Computed example of a mutant assay.
Amino acid sequence: MAYQNLISEVKENILYITINREKALNALNKDTLAELADVIEYAGKTDEVRGVILTGAGEKAFVAGADIKEFSDYNGKQGEELAKQGHKLVFNAIENSPKPFIAAINGFALGGGLELAMACHIRIASDNAKLGLPEVTLGLIPGYGGTQRLTQLVGKGKAIEMITTASMVSAEDAEKIGLVNYVVPQTDLIGRAEEILNVIKMRAPLAVAAAIKSVIASITETDGYVVEIEQFGKCFETEDFKEGVRAFVEKRKAVFKGK
């Protein structure tokens, strides 16, 4: 897959996506968001992809925000449409993907960059990372799910503090408050993400997708238990379930095919 603002490749069933705008600290402009939308869709529908690692180019930034110049003269209606399309095509698309997305946060994750990381299912930060939502310093609020996902991850009080003060937190503090799963040296960042996905790759792909959908339903649906029950039932219809049971009885490792 050839993109202007992304580097993407699949190796051993892992899709590696690197936002490649290092000179702009990997800021999200319209073209980058469009390319992200395309590669997210590819990940979801491609059986070869079992998981995704999303990171930024260089050692300074994961994504240092959105390209403010592109929407500096927008009116209210245009602003709403910007947020709506971003939610649909990128941020919600990541969260609702059947494939696990890991954000490998290799530096600054600010504004839309932190929102992008929070849309991912798992977050790992390098020890030099700084995370924050500085939108109120521009007279805005987070518009790509930041007010919602930050609250879900760290709680109402901490979310309001971070958003209204526009303060950054260190990687260490981000781990303490539940904003990231792990903090590692930058040299170990991709390796740690690969370790997690290599474990997930051993599990039944349809069950992994069902689990992600059910967990997300706890936040997005009125009654997530209904989704869980439905997904639980569907698992019984899969070949992977039958293989998993046989492997358990035969005391061997299961060989799942995602069917």
Results as ranks from 00 to 15, higher is better:
Lys77Asn: 13
Glu161Leu: 10
Thr32Cys: 00
Thr32His: 00
Glu95Lys: 11
Ala247Asp: 09
Met118Leu: 10
Asn106Leu: 02
Met1Asp: 11
Ser218Gln: 14
Glu237His: 15
Gly112Ile: 03
Glu175Ile: 03
Val136His: 08
Val10Lys: 04
Glu175Leu: 11
Ala254Arg: 00
Thr238Ala: 07
Val49Met: 06
Glu135Phe: 00
Asp47Gln: 12
Glu228Phe: 13
Lys130Cys: 06
Asn198Met: 14
Asn198Pro: 02
Gly146Val: 01
Ala64Trp: 06
Gly146Arg: 01
Met1Gln: 02
Asp73Lys: 08
Leu25Ser: 12
Glu230Gln: 07
Ile17Phe: 07
Asp127Cys: 10
Ile212Ala: 01
Ser167Leu: 14
Gln186His: 05
Gly51Val: 04
Ile14Asn: 05
Asp73Cys: 07
Ile94Arg: 07
Lys130Arg: 14
Leu25Tyr: 07
Ala210Glu: 05
Gly143Lys: 03
Ile17Pro: 06
Lys234Asn: 11
Phe241Gln: 12
Thr32Pro: 00
Val215Ala: 15
Glu59His: 12
Glu80Arg: 11
Ile229Leu: 14
Ala43Pro: 05
Ile163Arg: 03
Asp47Thr: 09
Ile216Phe: 11
Ala125Lys: 07
Leu206Glu: 15
Tyr42Cys: 11
Ala57Cys: 10
Ala171Gln: 06
Leu54Gly: 02
Ile40Val: 14
Lys130Asp: 07
Glu115Cys: 03
Val226Leu: 11
Glu228Cys: 15
Arg149Trp: 12
Arg123Asn: 13
Val227Tyr: 04
Phe256Trp: 00
Lys242Phe: 12
Lys84Ser: 11
Ile141Asp: 13
Ser8Glu: 13
Ile102Pro: 00
Val154Phe: 00
Gly51Gln: 04
Val208Asp: 04
Glu221His: 15
Ile19Tyr: 04
Thr165Asp: 03
Glu41Met: 05
Ser72Glu: 10
Glu48Trp: 11
Ala93Trp: 05
Ser97Glu: 05
Gln231Arg: 11
Thr137Val: 02
Gly178Lys: 05
Gln78Arg: 09
Lys156Cys: 11
Ser170Trp: 05
Gln4Glu: 13
Tyr42Arg: 10
Leu140Val: 09
Thr55Gln: 04
Ile190Leu: 08
Gln78His: 03
Lys45Ala: 13
Gly76Trp: 08
Leu116Val: 03
Glu59Lys: 06
Phe108Asp: 10
Ala57His: 08
Ala125Leu: 09
Gly155Gln: 01
Thr187Asn: 08
Arg149Ser: 08
Asp67Ile: 01
Gly157Cys: 11
Ala166Met: 03
Ala66Phe: 07
Ile7Glu: 15
Leu25Met: 11
Gly145Asp: 10
Leu28Tyr: 14
Leu138Asn: 14
Lys201Gln: 07
Cys235Pro: 09
Ala119Leu: 01
Thr238Gly: 06
Glu9Asp: 15
Gly145Pro: 10
Ser214Asn: 01
Gly79Met: 09
Ala125Glu: 08
Phe248Met: 15
Leu15Lys: 10
Asp127Ala: 05
